[in-house]
Amino acid sequence: MRCIGVMTSGGDAPGMNACIRAVVRTAAYHGLRVMGIRRGFQGLIEGEIVELRPRDVGGIIQRGGTILQTARSKEFMTEEGQRKALRRLNQHGIEGLVVIGGDGSMRGALALHQRGFPVVGVPASIDNDIWGTNMSIGVDTALNTIIDAIDRLRDTASSIGRAFLVETMGRDCGYLALIAGVIGGAEMVLIPERETRLEEVARAVMDAYERGKTHALIVIAEGSPYRTTEVAKFLESHPIGFDVRITILGHIQRGGSPTAFDRLLATRMGVKAVEALLGGERGVMTALQGRDIVTIPLEEVVQRRREANLAYYDMVLMLAR
C-alpha cells in the first residue's frame, strides 16, 4: 500500500481534526502518501481530492470542526454513486480509505468494503450512538459544552427562581441529555429511550419547589417523545411554583476546541486506523473498549445501535433531592 485517503463525513464533531492529523502523520511515518477528500462521500464522487502532507495538518489539533469539511450524500446511497466513488479512488491512486464519522458514515464505509475496497472507519459522533465503542470522538467535548451552559443557567435560575428546560442534541440516542442530567444536577431528563408522562415532569418540578429549591432543571433530548415547547406549555398550565424558561443549545454543542480526552481519543483512533490498513485489516472500525483501541467488523457496527444506559436515568431521580 502506497497511498491512502482520509475523509470526514456526516455531522461534524470536535476532535475530527485531531484524527485527520494523526492519520496523515502516521501514514507519513510509514512512507505512505495521503489524499484528503473534501465534503465526505459527495466530495469523493465529485473528485474534491487534495494531497495532505505532515505540514498541512500542523496547528489543527486544537481546532473544532473539520478542515476537510463534511456533507451528507444521497447520491452515494445509490449503486451509481458508489461506482463513481470507486472510480475517483482509483483515478487518484488511493489504495485504502479512512472514514471518520457517525452511523451513516460507517454504513457508507461498509458499502465500499462490500465492493472490495479496503476501508477502516473511525467513530465520530457527539450523540455517542455508535455500537461497539465506549466513546466516539466529540462526545466529551459536547458534554463539557452542555455542562458549562447548565452551570451558567443555574446561576440565573437560582437568582430569579425559575425552572429551565434545556434541550440537547440526541435525535435517536439520549446519551448527552442523560449524562448531563446526572452531572448537571437535573430534576429529570426526557430521552427517546424512556417514556415519561408530562405529569411526572410537573410533579418533579413541584417537588423541587416544595423542598425549598431555588430553581429546577429539566434536560430534554431533541428526540424526546415531547417537544420542549410542549413540555413548557404543560408546566405553565400547572401550579409548579416556578416561572418556566427554555434554552435550546443547538449547534454550539458541535463546536469548540476539543477537550484533552477527545484529542487523545481521536489521535489514538487515527493511528490505529492507519496501522489496521497496513496490517491488512478491511471493513473494520476502530473502537474504544476499556483502555484499549481495538477494531471490530463494520457489519456488526451497523446492525446495532448503542443506546443510553437507563441506570443513569434512575440515578438522576435519586440524586434530585
Rank of each mutant, 00 (worst) to 15 (best):
I20M: 13
D127T: 02
I218V: 15
D314Y: 10
S9P: 05
F117M: 10
L112A: 03
E307S: 15
A85E: 05
C19M: 04
A186D: 09
G65P: 01
F76D: 10
G64W: 02
E46P: 00
I126C: 10
D262N: 14
L298Y: 00
P239D: 03
G161K: 15
F261V: 09
R2A: 07
E48L: 15
I218Q: 06
G138H: 03
E300V: 07
R63G: 07
I60W: 02
Q69S: 15
P239E: 11
L86T: 05
N309G: 05
A18S: 15
A208Q: 02
E79C: 09
I126L: 13
V122N: 07
R197S: 11
L32I: 04
R211N: 05
I4C: 11
Y209C: 10
E79W: 08
G184P: 02
L68N: 03
I293W: 11
T26I: 07
F242A: 10
E222G: 07
Y29V: 06
H30G: 06
D314E: 14
E200T: 12
A287P: 00
G93I: 04
R33W: 08
L97Q: 05
D103G: 15
R152C: 09
R154C: 07
M135G: 00
Y226I: 01
T214P: 05
Q62K: 15
R63H: 14
R211I: 08
V23W: 06
N90D: 11
S159M: 13
E80S: 13
